[in-house]
Design a protein around this nucleic acid. Structure first.
Lengths: 228, 228
DNA sequence: GTTTGGATTATAACATGTTATAAATTAATG
DNA sequence: CATTAATTTATAACATGTTATAATCCAAAC
């Protein structure tokens, strides 16, 4: 005889678990509210009672993934400049572990344009980058006048859009990683002191070379094909 | 007795015009395929025959807006560095002229995540920025080793995501303009020569000041409210 | 002028997210 | 134990994008 709240919590959990199962198994397609209700052994009205909408369920699922990311993120130890790039690489690693799932959840969660999405994804990320920027500034890699919020927002957005491109199948994971690294290097270098610049400039050259090599082979946006 | 092709072209036009009318009048809401068919005086099957999907119709509508932007863009004359910022400001001006319409069309066209969207929006924009980057490099504002594609991609994406944020109601038009200007200045400065940097650095300071002022008043992501 | 064939039409249907409603269940309350 | 009230359930319904189908129209080909 479970308490009312306990029963509710159990249903919540059953729904989230069913959502996870469905996403892992079939990705975004085949994951309908009716299928979810069936898989969770619950009426179709219940997910709406407990979560409100399909998107809210996706966000709840996303939350569990975010927690995992946060844990691994906390374990990273690199200097105040290197950490930017390692954080990016960590994300790509996690995506590589369950790509279809992450694509599906990103795709669904972004549904309405991401207003709610940002509540669980955008804002915490933004604060994370802001923290890193602040530390890099204190370590003397970035100019003292740089405002952490402004720079962090640019970093955060750039990361976000590249993730979106990957989720939508436009680029592969390794290209995601390289592109974000490159843009991060450029943005940071735009705000860097001499000591920061000395570390970032070689990075920019190296990354740019790799990106250019790739484009000259496979990217349709290479000049030769620009007419399409 | 119009030719078969003429009749088809007329229907196409009627549909696009109806779409424009509906978007201007009611924005995204209330713009359904059935409403569109009614407004165009055509069966609901016809838009699918002629365009294939709702999104394709949105893209066609977007195309007409793009043509307008292109015309006004070509008339801009500023030096190789200033032009970046003027191009951004021009876009915000156009959005300001018919905000609801642009928001609606952006919102709808981006529907499936923007695969097709990029065909009409992303790629031409990318090529435009790449051209500007190339010229700025030739003018000596950017380092010779900078790859125009890599930098242009970063600029293009950053612009894109800020536009998206505006379309989704997250920021106002003037904030869109300032944010893009700021990030552009940072990115360009990250790739700038001494002469380019001399022009960009003051810009960064000024823009950052304005962005920071704004945040300290209204932005929920300011540290004081970060707990939400 | 008659025939032909491609396009449009009216219409039904399907899957989807979502909402509404009335009945049934059941923990909480007395 | 009996009552109450909150929740879930079953179910129907709605609006949406989209597809399928058969009937109809009408320029094009002869």
């Amino acid at each position: 005889m479970p308490t009312r709240e306990e029963a509710k919590a159990q249903r919540r959990e059953a729904i989230i678990n069913a959502a996870l199962r469905l996403m892992y198994a079939r990705g975004d397609s085949g994951f309908s509210m009716r299928a979810l209700a069936d898989a969770a052994g619950v009426s179709i009205a219940t997910p709406y009672n407990l979560f409100g909408s399909k998107q809210a369920i996706m966000l709840a699922v996303l939350d569990t993934g975010m927690a995992h990311y946060g844990e691994r993120l906390a374990k990273l130890h690199a200097d105040e400049l290197e950490i930017f790039f390692e954080a990016v690489s960590l994300a790509t690693e996690l995506y590589a572990e369950a790509p279809k799932f992450h694509q599906a959840v990103l795709f669904s969660a972004y549904g309405d344009g991401g207003r709610d999405y940002r509540a669980v994804f955008g804002d915490p990320r933004f604060l994370f980058w802001k923290d890193l920027v602040t530390r890099a500034r204190e370590a003397g890699f970035l100019h003292a006048e740089i405002d952490p919020s402004a720079l962090a927002l640019a970093l955060s957005q750039q990361f976000f859009i590249c993730i979106l491109e990957w989720a939508y199948g436009e680029i592969e994971l390794d290209e995601l990683e390289q592109r974000v690294h490159y843009t991060f290097a450029l943005l940071l270098n735009g705000a860097a002191t001499a000591s920061g610049g000395a570390r970032l400039k070689p990075r920019i050259s190296a990354l740019q070379q790799r990106l250019t090599d790739r484009w000259s082979i496979s990217d349709p946006r290479t000049p030769a094909d620009a007419s399409r």
